[in-house]
Amino acid sequence: MSRNFMRSRQSGSALVVGIFIITVMFVLTAALIRVLGDADDNVNLEVWGTRALLAANSGADAALAQLFPPGGSAATDCSAVGTSWTPPNQPGFSGCSISVGCNLITVNFNGDTLHQFTLSSNAVCEAGQCSGGAGGTSNCLRVNRMVEVQARVD
């Protein structure tokens, strides 16, 4: 008689253990899905950040080419540099806008005049629906990178 009594007391424990295991597996699966989603977002940010950095580098290169034209004489002021640079119509530049700035410091030292230019290139690359309004959507990805270059003319 004691055998039958023991079976009846343990008959529901397998159900409780099964529900516990299913719950734990569900929580682990949900956490893994979230980690994979975050990793995907980080890869997108890394790619767009690299695109913005290279676009800013290209803007600085274009400004340097305006200051120091090939086969021409070097500029003595910032008037040769525009405030923005329009990138070529290439897939790597799509969604990117580049603004360029120039600052000139002129120094007279021992009878020599030195012109030091500080060029800044700021690239903003965006994808999705970035309307700029207060009610922004979650479909917007915007990355900003800035490059500063210094050049001197003796």
Rank of each mutant, 00 (worst) to 15 (best):
T76E: 04
V81A: 01
F93G: 03
C96R: 00
T113G: 05
S2K: 15
A63L: 04
N89T: 10
V153Y: 01
N139E: 13
S94I: 11
Q150C: 06
C130V: 08
L114P: 03
S120N: 08
I19D: 09
D41N: 14
V153E: 01
S73W: 13
C96F: 02
F20W: 12
N144W: 07
S99Q: 13
A30L: 12
E126C: 06
P88R: 01
P69E: 03
A75P: 03
Q129C: 03
C96H: 02
L54P: 04
Q150S: 15
L36Q: 15
D154F: 14
L104C: 02
L28Y: 10
V16H: 02
G12D: 10
A134T: 15
V43P: 00
G111T: 13
Q116Y: 08
T86C: 05
L15W: 06
L15S: 11
A63K: 07
P87K: 06
A134L: 15
N44I: 12
S138G: 15
T23M: 02
L67V: 01
G92S: 10
C140L: 04
C130K: 08
Q10F: 14
G92W: 04
G37V: 09
G72V: 13
G12Q: 08
V147N: 02
L53P: 05
N89R: 14
G101T: 00
Q129Y: 07
